[in-house]
Design a protein around this nucleic acid. Structure first.
Length: 726
RNA sequence: GCUGCUGUAGCUCAGCUGGUAGAGCGCGUCCUUGGUAAGGACGAGGUCAUGGGUUCAAGUCCCAUCAGCAGCUCCA
C-alpha cells in the first residue's frame, strides 16, 4: 500500500507501485497532463517513479507554476541540447549538464568547436527532439555494469567521474531518451514535449570538474521556460543588463577611464565619477563621526615583515604585487629562500646564487655550505632582516593594528574605531579584471574596531546597522545576508578552533537576534575570521556582494594586541573589520548599473543645467548659475549657439536631473522654467528661490526617483516573471 | 593564470577573394538668436594596438607581444 498526504492535508491510499502520475490522474486528467515532477517528502522526484510503499509520504505535484519544476525541466533541456549536439557533431564526450538560476549548461569534450553560427541548427535539432516528445526513461545499473556501459559508449569522462566523484555509489542511475543515454541523478520531466520555450545563449571554455590544470571543455549555455513570454521577458532583462553595463556607461558619461598607459585594472576617476565618489565618501564620513569612529591615515606601503606577521603575505603571495626591495639583490635572495623552502634548490642553482649575489654587493654572512635547509634559510633571513622590503599594501588592517598598538589602551578606551578610505593593491589574475567591479587598485571604506570580548556582539550589531543604513540610503534595501564560515576540514585558516567557534557563534547569535535572515556558507570565510556578507539586489534583480563585516580573534593574537582591564591585567581585544560599500570602485560601478547612470539628485555629478534660449538672456543665466552655485549645487550653463531643442536633447541624454530653461519671459520675471529629467510633461515656471529650496529639499532627503520599477529576483514561474515586466 | 573571440578617428562602426582608409556622432570655425529631444555651412582628426614575417604590394595573410570581451579558476 502507498500512502500519500497531499498539500491540503488529505491522505490517500494507492496500490503498491503507484506513481505520482497515478495520483495526479486520479485527481484529474488535466492535472496529470500539467504535472512535470513531484515533491516527495520535500525531495524532487520523477513523476513516474514508484512511490515508497513502506511509509506515508508528503506528496506535492509540481506543475509549470512551481519554481522547482522549472529546474527539473531545464535539466531535461540540457539533456535535449546534448542529444542535439551529438546528432550534429561526431565524437562528443559528455561531462556535466546542470541547471543554473537562469538556465542550464552542458560541458562537452569534442574535437569540433561549437560557434555561435551553429546555435540555430542546434536549436533546430532541439526543436525536433522536443516535437518528438519522447519520454525520459530512468534505469539503474550496479557499479561494475555502469562502468562497462559508459566505457562502451566511449564516455570517458563519465567513467572517470564514476571512479572518483561517485566512488561510493553501489548503483548508478541513467536516463534514456531515444538514442541518448546519460549517467544522471535526475530527476527529469516525463517527456521532452514539456519544454515549451528555449534558447542557446553562449559558448565558452570550461574545465572538467573546475580544475584549471585539467582538460579544456566547451560549455554550451542555454535557458528554457514553460512559456514563451517568460523567455522573452528573460531575454529582455539580459538586454537591459547589457544596456546598463557600467563600462559602457562609464565611458559614455565620462565617469572613469582605464588607460593602458597606467596599467591593467587601475582605475582613473574622471571628474564626474570622482564627484559621485566624493559625495559618497562625505556621506559616510558624517555617519562615522556620529557613530564614534575616528579618522586615520596610513601609508600605501608597509614592511613585508608586518604582512608576514598578519599572514597576508604568505597566504596571498600569488595575488600581490611583488615586494619592493631596497637592495638590488633583494629579489634574488627572496627567490633563493623560496627555492630552499620548497626543496627545489639544486646544487647548480645554489652555486649560481652564491656567485651572483656578490656582483650585486650582497654580503651574505655565515651561509653554511653543507648546512641544513633551516640553517641556510636562517642565514639568508638574517641578511634580509637588515634590508628594506616593502609591500604595496594589500590590506589596511595591519596598519590600523599598528595605530592601536602605538598607545597603551585601557578597557575604558574601548571600543576604538579607526576609519580610513584606504587604498590597497592586489595583483588579481588578468582574466578576472572587469571594469570597476574587479580592479588591481581599490579604495576600501575600511574601519577596524577594537573591543573587549564582552562588547563584541553589541559592536557587531551596530556595524550591521550601519551597513543597513548606508545601503538603504541608496535605495538598495533588497538584500540577503550570507554568513561565511570556515570549512573545518581545510587548513587554509589561521587561529585556534576555539577562536573560530567563538567568532562564528557570536555572528550567528547577533544575526538571529536582529531577525536578519541569513544563509550559512561553509568555506567562504576570510582566512582570519568569519564574516557576514551583504548580497544586494539591484533594481533589475541582479545580485552583487557589497558590504562585509568580519569578526577576527586571530590578528589580535598574532600582533599581540592588549588592553588593560579593570582587573589591572593585560587582555586581548577582538577586532571587527568592516566595509559597508566594500570598495569605492566596485560600489560606484554597481551604482552606475543600478541607476543606469541616471543618479539621483544628491549624487548626480551635474545636478542642474541652465539652458538660455538666446544669447540675450546670457547675463540672467549667469546670475542664476551664481545663485545655484552659492547654494552648493553643481550647475552649469549651456552657452552654445544651439537652439533650445538641441540643448534640451543633450541635457536629457546626459541625464542631468533638472534643466532650467530661461528666456526673455523668465529674465523679466526673475523666474526659471524647471524641466524634470523624469517628467517633461509637467514643467513649471517658478521664482529662482523656490526652485532652489525644492532642489535643496530633494538633496537633503536624498530622494530617489527612479522610473524603473524593482523587478523580481529571478525568472521562476509565470507569476514571478510577470512582475518582471517593467 | 587557462580556453576561445576581438583590436580601424574622441565614440559607434564600414572597409569584398591583399592594390597605402570611409560614414554617423562628437570636436573646431563661421552663419544663425531660435520657447522644450538634433538649425545650417565649412573644416581638422587615423604609423589601421605593438613588434616581427610572407609578398612587387599588408588594415586585410602568418607569428609573437600587449590590451579588451565571454567563460573557467580565484577574490583578504
Amino acid at each position: 500500500m502507498v500512502k500519500v498526504q497531499l498539500p491540503d492535508g488529505s491522505i490517500q491510499e494507492y496500490p503498491e507501485g503507484s506513481t505520482a502520475y497515478d495520483v495526479a490522474a486520479k485527481i484529474g486528467p488535466r492535472l496529470a497532463q500539467a504535472c512535470v515532477a513531484a515533491s516527495v517528502d520535500g525531495q524532487i522526484a520523477d513523476l513516474r517513479r514508484p512511490l515508497p510503499a513502506d511509509k506515508q509520504v508528503k506528496l506535492k505535484l509540481l506543475t509549470d507554476r512551481d519554481a522547482e519544476a522549472l529546474g527539473v525541466m531545464r535539466h531535461s533541456a540540457a539533456h535535449v541540447m546534448a542529444r542535439a549536439v551529438m546528432r550534429l557533431f561526431p565524437n562528443v564526450g559528455l561531462a556535466f549538464g546542470p541547471t543554473l538560476p537562469n538556465g542550464f549548461y552542458y560541458d562537452f569534450d569534442m574535437p569540433d568547436r561549437i560557434r555561435e553560427e551553429d546555435f540555430s541548427r542546434i536549436e533546430k535539432a532541439m526543436a525536433e527532439i522536443v516535437a518528438e516528445a519522447e519520454p525520459f526513461e530512468r534505469f539503474e545499473l550496479p557499479r561494475e555494469e555502469a562502468l562497462g556501459f559508459c566505457a562502451d559508449l566511449n564516455q570517458n569522462l563519465k567513467v572517470e567521474h564514476l571512479k572518483t566523484g561517485l566512488a561510493d555509489h553501489a548503483t548508478l542511475s541513467f536516463y534514456r531518451q531515444g538514442e541518448f543515454v546519460d549517467l544522471c541523478r535526475g530527476p527529469h520531466i516525463p517527456d521532452a514535449g514539456k519544454i515549451k520555450a528555449f534558447k542557446l545563449l553562449s559558448v565558452a571554455a570550461s574545465h572538467f570538474k573546475g580544475d584549471a590544470s585539467g582538460r579544456s571543455l566547451q560549455r554550451l549555455y542555454g535557458t528554457a521556460f514553460f512559456h514563451q513570454k517568460d523567455l522573452d521577458a528573460y531575454l529582455a532583462q539580459v538586454e537591459e543588463a547589457k544596456r546598463r553595463d557600467h563600462r559602457v556607461l562609464g565611458k559614455l558619461h565620462n565617469l572613469f577611464h582605464i588607460s593602458n598607459d597606467v596599467g591593467q585594472g587601475l582605475c582613473l576617476w574622471l571628474p564626474k565619477g570622482a564627484t559621485v565618489r566624493g559625495i559618497l565618501e562625505e556621506f559616510i564620513k558624517v555617519e562615522l563621526i556620529k557613530r564614534g569612529y575616528q579618522p586615520v591615515y596610513t601609508p600605501h606601503i608597509g614592511r613585508v615583515e608586518m604582512y608576514e606577521t598578519s599572514g597576508h603575505f604568505p597566504y596571498y603571495r600569488d595575488s600581490q604585487f611583488s615586494p619592493i626591495f631596497g637592495h638590488p639583490a633583494g629579489a634574488i635572495v627572496d627567490r633563493w629562500i623560496t627555492l630552499l623552502e620548497s626543496n627545489e634548490l639544486t646544487p647548480e642553482k645554489e652555486r649560481q646564487f652564491q656567485e651572483f649575489s656578490p656582483l650585486l654587493e650582497a654580503k651574505i654572512e655565515n651561509y653554511p655550505q653543507g648546512g641544513s635547509v633551516a640553517e641556510k634559510v636562517q642565514a639568508l633571513r638574517a641578511w634580509q632582516g637588515h634590508q628594506e622590503r616593502y609591500l604595496l599594501k594589500p590590506m589596511n588592517c595591519p596598519h590600523h593594528v599598528q595605530i592601536y598598538k602605538s598607545q597603551q589602551r585601557s578597557y575604558r578606551d574601548l571600543p576604538v574605531r579607526l576609519a580610513e578610505f584606504g587604498t590597497v593593491y592586489r595583483h588579481e589574475q588578468s582574466g578576472e579584471l572587469n571594469g570597476m567591479l574587479r580592479v588591481r587598485g581599490l579604495t576600501q571604506d575600511d574601519a577596524h574596531q577594537f573591543c573587549t570580548p564582552e562588547q563584541v556582539e553589541d559592536e557587531f550589531r551596530q556595524t550591521v546597522e550601519l551597513v543597513q543604513f548606508v545601503l538603504g540610503s541608496l535605495g538598495l534595501d533588497d538584500y540577503r545576508v550570507q554568513l561565511s564560515l570556515r570549512d573545518p576540514n581545510s587548513d587554509k585558516y589561521v587561529g585556534s578552533d576555539e577562536n573560530w567557534k567563538r567568532a562564528e557563534s557570536a555572528l550567528r547569535h547577533v544575526l538571529e537576534e536582529m531577525k536578519l535572515p541569513f544563509e550559512p556558507r561553509q568555506g567562504e570565510a576570510a582566512f582570519y575570521g568569519p564574516k557576514a556578507d551583504f548580497m544586494v539586489r539591484d533594481c533589475i534583480g541582479r545580485e552583487w556582494q557589497l558590504g562585509t563585516v568580519q569578526l577576527d580573534y586571530n590578528l589580535p593574537e598574532r600582533f599581540q594586541l592588549e588592553y588593560i582591564g579593570a582587573d589591572n591585567k593585560a587582555h586581548q581585544p577582538v577586532m571587527i573589520h568592516r566595509a559597508p560599500f566594500g570598495s569605492m570602485e566596485r560600489f560606484v560601478g554597481v551604482l552606475i548599473e543600478h541607476f543606469a547612470a541616471a543618479f539621483p539628485l544628491w549624487l548626480a555629478p551635474e545636478q542642474v543645467r541652465i539652458l538660455p534660449i538666446s544669447e540675450k538672456v546670457n547675463d540672467y543665466a549667469a546670475s542664476v548659475e551664481q545663485q545655484l552655485k552659492a547654494a552648493g549645487f553643481r550647475a552649469t550653463t549651456d552657452l552654445r549657439s544651439a537652439k533650445i531643442n538641441g540643448k534640451i536633447r543633450d541635457a536629457q541624454l546626459e541625464l542631468i536631473p533638472y534643466m532650467l530653461v530661461i528666456g526673455q519671459k523668465e529674465a523679466e520675471q526673475g523666474t526659471v522654467t524647471v524641466r524634470d529629467r523624469l517628467d517633461a510633461e509637467h514643467q513649471k515656471t517658478v521664482p529662482v528661490a523656490q526652485a532652489l529650496s525644492e532642489f535643496a529639499a530633494e538633496v537633503k532627503e536624498r530622494r530617489i526617483r527612479q522610473t524603473v520599477k524593482p523587478a523580481a529576483s529571478s525568472f521562476g514561474g509565470g507569476e514571478e516573471a510577470a512582475a518582471n515586466e517593467y
